[in-house]
């Protein structure tokens, strides 16, 4: 009879033990179009993603928290992902000065200061892929590539302080367990975008477009 009681207790506790919904990143898949540009006889594929930035990502960038953005462009071939382009930045919006302090990780960690979100988007949220062998197949016939734009918060002193404050609101018994289960208390958003690439023939090619890439920014001389 004792064995039956034991089994009963085990079954009941297993049923009663519930697991809440896990933290999940929201991902949405969108569509956009790319364009070819020819400057000084150098063909470049331009994929601007400023318009595809979600409200949550905009809010994250302008929140004042340090954020990390990663723009990846890849193509799917034989079930694998082939990386064509990558652009990574860290951004912190100074809410008082109203400027974006940006570090371009793929350009030798160059730090710049920009005043406008559009300028920041030009720096960090736009893919400029030179016409190399990797994308040679797109030049004549065009095709579809995929872009993934992830913006996530980097825990800093402010967010660590907020996290500690949330933990302190719990009872002492629960603080340790709660801290472990809550994680870093950061939020992020990633979007997947399918990019329609036209053929780089004459009628689809935009010849003259001012792509003076870095307008209106100030390079930070001191790190």
């Amino acid at each position: 009879m004792m064995r039956k009681l034991n089994n009963f207790a085990i079954i009941i506790t297993c049923i009663l033990f519930s697991i809440s919904s896990a933290f999940a990143q929201n991902k949405t898949t969108l569509m956009t179009a790319a364009s070819w540009h020819n400057k000084m006889k150098k063909l470049t594929l331009l994929i601007p993603l400023i318009e595809k930035l979600s409200d949550k990502q905009k809010d994250l960038i302008t929140s004042g928290f340090s954020t990390f953005s990663a723009l990846s462009v890849y193509r799917k071939a034989n079930g694998k992902k082939e990386l064509l382009f990558r652009n990574r930045c860290t951004v912190r919006f100074d809410t008082w000065e109203e400027i974006f302090e940006t570090s371009l990780l793929d350009m030798n960690f160059k730090t710049v200061t920009v005043k406008k979100l559009n300028t920041l988007a030009e720096l960090c949220l736009t893919a400029r892929i030179p016409a190399t062998e990797k994308i040679s197949y797109l030049i004549n016939n065009g095709g579809i590539v995929h872009a993934e734009l992830q913006v996530k918060q980097i825990p800093t002193e402010e967010s660590d302080r907020i996290r500690d404050w949330v933990i302190q609101q719990q009872s002492r018994v629960m603080q340790g367990l709660f801290s472990h289960m809550m994680g870093d208390l950061k939020y992020s958003e990633a979007i997947n975008i399918a990019v329609q690439v036209p053929s780089a023939k004459k009628k689809n090619r935009q010849k003259k477009r001012n792509i003076n890439i870095y307008p209106d920014y100030q390079e930070n001389k001191s790190p």
């Binding site: 033990f17 933290f23 367990l177 289960m181 809550m182």
Partner: peptide, 14 residues
């Protein structure tokens, strides 16, 4: 995403 589930999980666990 994080706080509410953590509270529920911890309370349920205890």
């Amino acid at each position: 995403d994080q706080i509410r589930p953590a509270i529920i999980q911890v309370n349920t666990l205890i």
